[in-house]
Simulated scan of single mutants.
Amino acid sequence: MSEQTNTEYEKYYVPEQSKLPFIGSIGLFLTAFGAGNMVQGNYPEGYILYLGLAVLVYMLSTWWAATIRESMSGLYSAQMSRSFRQGMLWFITSEVMFFAAFFGALFYVRILVMEWLGGSSNNAATHEFLWPEFIPNWPMEKTPAGETTQGMGAWGLPAINTAILLFSSFTLTIAHHALIEKNRATLIQFTAITAALGVIFMGLQIWEYIHAYTEMGLTLGSGIYGSTFFMLTGFHGLHVTVGTIFLIILTIRCAKGHFTPQDHFAYEAGAWYWHFVDVVWVFLFIFVYIL
């Protein structure tokens, strides 16, 4: 009897065939195509981006709703739980590589390209014949073509946002421990606080962007400094948005009593993702804003 029960427990659940992967592929294509056209200034075609995002939201919400139903129905085994963990770890690894590419571009520009444009000993001709008046300072407030902008300071909104994200990791850790200790009220309260801190972070970053565009002349087209600044902080902001939505859903699920100390991988996945986003911001704050 024990052996039969053990076999049933380890049975791997395979869901029915679904059209969601195909729908998701269409959404990704439309998103990439629309984003590319928007960056190039083809604003009418940029609306394709919003269509692609809408398709992705539909696909993800439908998929996650089905996953929650399957989990609450007891269809998942220990093997399925291990698969989820491995998948989340590989996903975060891919995100590390994603941001590493942008940080690599930033370091390449600051350490090598600035030296070349400034007329280092091996590249004096570049400076002399192309941009003799170029001063290799970072942030690059004046491009070789003569365009001017301003560098974003670190000790205003960016410092406040850093404090917010660091504190949010603390509140999420409290919530996670409350889940393990079966303290449902504290779990719901501190998960909701963490989500609210994410919303505040996004609001302050939007305020920072408005200030950069309207008062500082710092835009995505402001030379290599502007492009790296907005690519790094913008993609991080996108990740904060996803993480905040994740936390809001987790708050709702906690209020419905979905998690137990023994079975709460979805909550762990949200915590892993949020802590990863916080760590990335610390590196951003140091290398983009301070140094």
Results as ranks from 00 to 15, higher is better:
Ser2Thr: 10
Thr5Ile: 08
Thr7Ser: 08
Tyr9Ser: 06
Tyr9Asn: 02
Lys19Thr: 12
Leu20Gln: 05
Leu20Tyr: 13
Pro21Glu: 09
Pro21Phe: 09
Pro21Trp: 10
Pro21Gln: 07
Leu28Trp: 11
Leu30Cys: 13
Leu30Ser: 04
Ala32Gln: 05
Gly36Lys: 07
Val39Asn: 00
Gln40Arg: 14
Gly41Glu: 11
Gly41Phe: 08
Tyr43Pro: 01
Pro44Ala: 03
Tyr47Ser: 09
Tyr47Trp: 15
Leu49Ala: 05
Leu51Thr: 13
Leu53His: 02
Val55Glu: 12
Val55Pro: 13
Val57Gln: 02
Tyr58Gln: 04
Thr62Ala: 15
Trp63Met: 08
Trp64Met: 10
Ala65Val: 11
Thr67Asn: 09
Arg69Lys: 15
Glu70Gln: 14
Met72Lys: 15
Ser73Glu: 15
Tyr76His: 15
Gln86Cys: 04
Met88Lys: 08
Leu89Gln: 14
Thr93Glu: 07
Thr93Ala: 15
Ser94Gln: 08
Glu95Tyr: 05
Glu95Asp: 12
Glu95Phe: 09
Phe98Thr: 09
Phe103Ala: 11
Gly104Gln: 11
Gly104Ala: 07
Phe107Asp: 07
Tyr108Cys: 05
Arg110Glu: 14
Leu112Glu: 13
Leu112Pro: 00
Val113Thr: 10
Met114Gly: 00
Leu117Met: 14
Gly118Ala: 07
Ser120Ile: 04
Ser120Cys: 05
Asn122Ala: 03
Asn123Gln: 13
His127Met: 03
Phe129Glu: 12
Trp131Tyr: 15
Pro132Tyr: 11
Ile135Ala: 10
Ile135Tyr: 06
Asn137Trp: 01
Asn137Ala: 14
Trp138Ile: 11
Pro139Asp: 07
Glu141Ala: 11
Thr143Lys: 02
Pro144Ile: 02
Glu147Pro: 01
Thr148Asn: 03
Thr148Glu: 15
Trp155Met: 10
Leu157Phe: 13
Ala159Tyr: 10
Ile160Gln: 03
Thr162Gly: 11
Thr162Ser: 14
Ile164Trp: 12
Ile164Gln: 09
Leu166Glu: 01
Leu172His: 02
Ile174Cys: 03
His177Met: 01
Leu179Phe: 07
Ile180Ser: 08
Asn183Asp: 15
Ala185Phe: 07
Ile188Asp: 00
Gln189Lys: 15
Ile193Trp: 02
Leu197Ile: 04
Gly198Leu: 03
Val199Thr: 11
Gly203Ile: 04
Leu204Arg: 02
Glu208Pro: 02
His211Ser: 08
His211Leu: 09
Ala212His: 02
Glu215Ile: 00
Met216Ala: 10
Leu220Arg: 01
Ser222Phe: 07
Gly223Glu: 07
Tyr225Pro: 00
Tyr225Gln: 04
Tyr225Arg: 04
Gly226Ala: 02
Ser227Asp: 00
Phe230Thr: 06
Phe230His: 13
Phe230Pro: 09
Met231Ile: 15
Leu232Phe: 00
Thr233Cys: 06
Thr233Lys: 04
Gly234Pro: 12
Leu238Met: 14
Thr241Val: 11
Gly243Thr: 00
Thr244Met: 12
Ile249Lys: 01
Cys254Asp: 11
Ala255Asn: 12
Ala255Cys: 05
Lys256Cys: 05
Gly257Asn: 06
His258Leu: 05
Phe265Val: 08
Gly270His: 11
Val277Ala: 13
Asp278Arg: 00
Val279Arg: 06
Val279Glu: 00
Val280Ser: 03
Phe285Asn: 08
Ile286Phe: 14
Phe287Pro: 05
